[in-house]
């Protein structure tokens, strides 16, 4: 069974203006209904396969984002939703914003927009699903199982 048939989604606001957050939430509601792809919006990082982050990461959320990412089981994909999450956007020059999400954790799909439109976000999620399958395949072919021991891989 493919994992991409029912991936669960974790959303975190890393200092976004809220515009993208409500669009992420709106894409799970009847008009856009991302749940028809088997996606469930979960609040628990250990249940999640897709990590949707909105907003440029600030000083205080930096650790939170890292921690949530390390708690998610492999394989996992990260979607940067909105232009702030992609590269800092309008807040790039602010003293407390470090820039895009990719300054903290690796990002697989970038979905720009201010605010991101639900249609674009769904498109991004579908792209992410393909990446999720690829990652799963790659894991199968690896002799070493990359189990996450509290945020550190075995090699470390």
């Amino acid at each position: 069974m493919k994992i991409s048939k029912s991936p669960w989604l974790l959303h975190y606001d890393a200092s976004s203006c809220n515009g993208c957050d409500i669009e992420v939430l709106a894409s799970t509601t009847p008009r856009f209904d991302v749940e028809r792809f088997g996606i469930i919006n979960t609040g628990n990082p250990k249940h999640a396969d897709i990590f949707v982050i909105t907003g440029g990461v600030n000083e205080q959320t930096r650790q939170v984002v890292k921690q949530l990412y390390s708690q998610m089981p492999d394989p996992k994909v990260v979607i940067a939703a909105g232009i702030c999450a992609c590269d800092g956007g309008i807040f790039k020059d602010c003293y407390n914003v470090s820039g895009g999400v990719d300054t903290v954790i690796p990002v697989d799909v970038y979905v720009p927009g201010c605010a991101v439109k639900p249609e674009a976000l769904i498109d991004g999620v579908v792209k992410a699903l393909a990446i999720l399958d690829e990652k799963r395949e790659a894991m199968k072919n690896h002799a070493v199982c990359e189990v996450n021991y509290g945020g550190k891989t075995k090699e470390e």
Partner: peptide
Amino acid sequence: FVHRGLESLVSKKDFKEMVYVAERICG
């Protein structure tokens, strides 16, 4: 956790551009 410090942008963006910043205080 969401503190960006956008009030400091007044020194970088002029008073007309600040309209966009003000709108993005909250979505």
